[in-house]
C-alpha cells in the first residue's frame, strides 16, 4: 500500500519536481564520492596477467554495458506504466532515459573497440558481445528517431511504449541469435571474462564503478526528467497562449 501511495504522489509533476530538487544535491554528492572512490580503487587495481594494464578499460566498458541494458529495462518498465496504468510520469521517465541509455551504449561500444585494438589487433571485431551491443545501440537510435519525429508528446508516448516493450522482448532473442551466429563464424572470442574466475582485487573496483555509473545514470535521469516536465509545461502554456489570442 505504501508503495502505491508513493507512486500516486509521484504522479503529480509539481510534487515530483519538489522531491527532485530536494534529492538532487544528495544524489550529486553521493555520485561524486562513489565515483572518486571507484576511480581510486581502479587506479590501484592490479594488472591482469594476460591483458596487462588494458584491463583498466574494463572498469568503464562493463558498467556501461550493464547500464545500456538497464536503460532499456527501465524504458520497458516505464512503457508498462504508460500502457497499463497511464502513469503521467512514466512517459517522462522513458523519454528522459532514451538519450542517456544511448550515451552509455555508445560509451560501451567505443571503449570496447579501444579495448579490442590492443587485444585483437583491430578496432572492430564482430564478436558476439560487441555485436549485441551494436544492435542495442541501433534500437536506441530508433527510439530517439521516434521521439524526434513526433512533436506531440501524447501521440508518441504510447508508440514509444510499444516499441520499448517489443524491443525488450526481442533483445534476449537478438542476444541468443548473435551468440549462435558468432560461434558459427569464429571459434572463440579473445576476451573471456565473467563467470567465477574474476579475482576480488578486480571484482571489487568493478562493482564500485558499476555502482558509480548507476548513480550517475540516476542523476542524469532525474535532471533530464526535470527538463522534460518543464518542456511540457512550456508546451501547454504556449497552447494556452495560442488559444487565448
Amino acid at each position: 500500500m505504501a508503495l502505491i501511495d508513493i507512486f500516486n504522489n509521484l504522479a503529480n509533476p509539481t510534487r515530483f519536481l519538489a522531491l527532485t530538487n530536494r534529492v538532487l544535491p544528495w544524489l550529486t554528492a553521493l555520485t561524486v564520492i562513489v565515483l572518486v572512490y571507484g576511480l581510486y580503487r581502479v587506479a590501484y587495481a592490479p594488472d591482469d596477467y594476460q591483458q596487462g594494464a588494458t584491463v583498466k578499460i574494463m572498469f568503464l566498458h562493463v558498467p556501461a554495458a550493464w547500464l545500456a541494458m538497464m536503460g532499456w529495462g527501465l524504458m520497458a518498465v516505464a512503457a508498462f506504466g504508460t500502457l497499463v496504468w497511464r502513469h503521467p510520469l512514466a512517459d517522462v521517465a522513458a523519454r528522459a532515459a532514451a538519450p542517456i541509455g544511448a550515451a552509455f551504449t555508445f560509451i560501451c561500444l567505443v571503449t570496447g573497440s579501444l579495448w579490442g585494438r590492443p587485444m585483437w589487433g583491430t578496432y572492430w571485431v564482430w564478436d558476439a558481445r560487441l555485436t549485441s551491443v551494436l544492435v542495442l545501440f541501433l534500437l536506441y537510435l530508433g527510439m530517439l528517431a521516434l521521439y524526434w519525429t513526433a512533436e506531440d508528446p501524447n501521440r508518441s508516448a504510447r508508440a514509444a511504449a510499444i516499441l520499448a516493450l517489443v524491443g525488450a522482448i526481442n533483445i534476449p532473442i537478438i542476444k541468443f541469435s548473435v551468440d549462435w551466429w558468432n560461434t558459427l563464424h569464429q571459434p572463440a572470442s579473445v576476451i573471456r571474462m565473467g563467470g567465477s574466475a574474476i579475482d576480488p582485487s578486480i571484482l571489487v573496483p568493478l562493482l564500485i564503478m558499476a555502482l558509480a555509473f548507476t548513480l550517475l545514470f540516476l542523476l542524469l535521469l532525474l535532471l533530464n526528467m526535470r527538463n522534460e516536465i518543464l518542456r511540457r509545461r512550456v508546451r501547454s502554456m504556449r497552447m494556452m497562449q495560442a488559444a487565448s489570442i
Partner: peptide
Amino acid sequence: HASFIVAAYIVT
C-alpha cells in the same frame, strides 16, 4: 597500450 586506456577514459 597506455594510449588506448587513456583514450577510453577521455571518451567516457
